[in-house]
């Protein structure tokens, strides 16, 4: 089913999404991948303040290419989510509501998604040029020294994703494999 949602995410709306839904996201999302996750995780373990409010917000696992003059951002497709599995349950327990990446998640992440009624979206891997067109603004807000791995605040319009793990723990990858 096709659905349109806005950020910050409405918990009720998120709980209604189902694995397999094709969703268009509009609003602010934040980028973070391996190194930024490590830093956020360490900050939380030390009881520190994160560089942005994760409550009801969404992280996009992205490290873009540099933008040319006149471009908002360079190529901007998802990276493999499983490398963030170690850090994700803690972020979800602190209010993070959604993630956009690609590929499988481990059991701990799936449990944390169910417990916190969150959602895991997948964007098309290897379609970074196409996806960049849906990003209307981009600003580095933290960890500038990490280069492509810095945290960016993006404004996206109708960014296309697919629900892979919904708030009930249904997993589209598993459903697909069972059906053939």
């Amino acid at each position: 089913m096709e659905k349109f949602i806005h950020t910050p995410l409405n918990p009720e709306e998120i709980s209604e999404l189902r694995a397999g839904d094709y969703v268009y996201i509009t609003g602010i999302i934040y980028t973070a991948r391996d190194a930024a996750h490590q830093r956020m995780f360490d900050t939380m373990m030390d009881g520190g303040q994160l560089p942005f409010d994760i409550k009801n917000n969404m992280i996009y696992y992205l490290g873009p290419t540099p933008e040319r003059e006149g471009q908002v951002i360079g190529s901007a497709g998802p990276t493999t989510s499983s490398r963030m599995d170690k850090y994700t349950p803690l972020l979800l327990d602190h209010g993070l509501k959604g993630m956009i990446g690609k590929g499988k998640r481990n059991d701990q992440v799936i449990e944390a998604i169910k417990k916190n009624k969150a959602v895991y979206f997948v964007a098309i891997g290897g379609a970074g040029a196409l996806l960049s067109k849906k990003i209307k603004s981009s600003e580095v807000i933290a960890y500038d020294d990490l280069g492509t791995e810095a945290i960016r605040k993006l404004y996206v319009e109708e960014f296309p994703v697919i629900v892979v793990i919904d708030s009930q723990g249904n997993n589209l990858y598993e459903i697909v494999l069972q059906s053939c």
């Binding site: 992205l62 490290g63 873009p64 290419t65 040319r68 471009q71 360079g74 190529s75 901007a76 497709g77 990276t79 098309i124 290897g126 379609a127 970074g128 040029a129 196409l130 960049s132 067109k133």
Partner: peptide, 24 residues
């Protein structure tokens, strides 16, 4: 649908000078 978008992605990459994938 995904294969169609991958084709479109290749068109955009060469037309607008955006790398095909962000992992270069």
């Amino acid at each position: 649908q995904i294969l169609g978008q991958l084709g479109e992605n290749l068109d955009i990459a060469s037309k607008d000078f955006i790398p095909i994938c962000q992992d270069t």
